[in-house]
Design a protein around this nucleic acid. Structure first.
Lengths: 225, 225
DNA sequence: ACCTGAACACCGTTCAAGT
DNA sequence: ACCTGAACACCGTTCAAGT
């Protein structure tokens, strides 16, 4: 029944790699990487699961393609901004992309053979540091520090079982109620005096840490190698 | 055949949660989380796969248990060190643990109901900042920044297809040879002038970024909230 | 050139049955 | 109380067959 198209005139779009990857991203966005199944992907494309293999070597190739596509969504550092502004903007954009595609935090396209989008992006980031006055070594340090922070923050954020301030507060109340507060006094203090403050949002921590790192990089740039 | 014990006198150790989790960690350490299969785990324990369910609710429960166990391996921040030394030591220990158990980088025990080891560890880290003179808000910032960095660094490190300087150099040569260097000039420069330098090891970047963050935290602690 | 259906070797998990 | 075997509903992937 599911294989019957609604009308004979339905224009049956030809399958291609781009459509396959797009549908796969949509599937992973809404249900996580676990929901991404070749059979389910075929369903979404109104095709048998095995047809997908005509456009993708295997699941690993599919996921690499997804990662490279998602990398394209990250705003490249602008040439007209100073290094700090440029890196700050692209870092914020990077995190936004990881929030939209949480599965991407655990997928490493860079592994063996990164896609073109990934290479171009990395080149531009390193170039931004170099043109901003960083030595080659300092640019390597900066790149590593900033991207490690972004990936790690996105992963921590993803693992939180709440997002809105209301959810956070509700969760914190429960945690605090069932926590043996005498065993974990500092955790209790942090929860009561910080997390439960009105308007608290873990995501606000992102810029605090990012600016802290950018400040450090500015000193590194100005100071000795 | 596999179900026959070698000798009748073999002392058949009773299964328990601890042994199950230990074997699961060993399996994931050597083959990644993909290699961790209930059936394979049963094999390693000389038991049918289904017996594992007597000691573990399901695979998710198993993985949570593994994460909490691994958290115990992280050196707690010492009470006798100043905050910076204490956090630096435990951060290095944290990364060491994630290098030993790479699968743990993508597993979040903290999610819904963190284990006792995780809670105790977090409490001690926050306490170290508080006793070091950080306000509650600053301690929250510090905790978030440091742990995001550690997780992210471990993830990047895990995804690299090389570890020793020799492997790195070999990999960099190949990359450089097949890279259209005119399209990616800065990536090429970084590879040629930095990565290919004798003794280069990506893991050395860890302390550079960590100390940069600790410097920033020291300013935050001393300066205004 | 692309799509299909059946098949294979796996998964996690349930459940009745054994001891 | 713990372990087992068969079974169920899934996986990724191969391959011969269709168009």
């Amino acid at each position: 029944m599911a294989s019957l198209r609604k009308t004979a005139s339905e224009p049956r779009v030809r399958l291609n790699r781009e459509r396959v990857i797009g549908a796969a991203i949509a599937l992973a966005d809404s249900g996580g990487l676990d929901a991404l199944t070749m059979r389910r992907l075929g369903d979404d494309l109104s095709v048998e699961a095995m047809s997908v293999y005509n456009h993708v070597a295997n699941k690993e190739d599919l996921i690499n393609g997804m990662a490279d596509t998602v990398f394209c969504e990250i705003e490249l550092p602008s040439h007209s901004d100073d290094w700090r502004t440029a890196i700050r903007k692209r870092s914020i954009s990077f995190r936004d992309v990881l929030v939209r595609h949480p599965w991407a935090t655990t997928v490493r396209d860079s592994g063996t053979n990164p896609g073109a989008a990934t290479l171009r992006h990395h080149d531009r980031v390193i170039g931004t540091f170099r043109n901003g006055g960083f030595s080659v070594a300092a640019a390597a340090h900066a790149f590593s520090a900033v991207d490690s922070y972004i990936y790690g923050f996105a992963m921590q954020e993803k693992s939180l079982p709440f997002t809105t301030p209301e959810e956070t507060a509700a969760m914190a109340e429960i945690l605090l109620a069932q926590l043996p507060t005498s065993d974990y006094p500092y955790l209790a203090e942090l929860t009561a005096d910080h997390v439960l403050k009105p308007g608290y949002r873990y995501s606000d921590e992102f810029l605090v840490g990012l600016d802290l790192i950018l400040d450090g990089l500015e000193s590194m740039r100005a100071g000795p190698s």
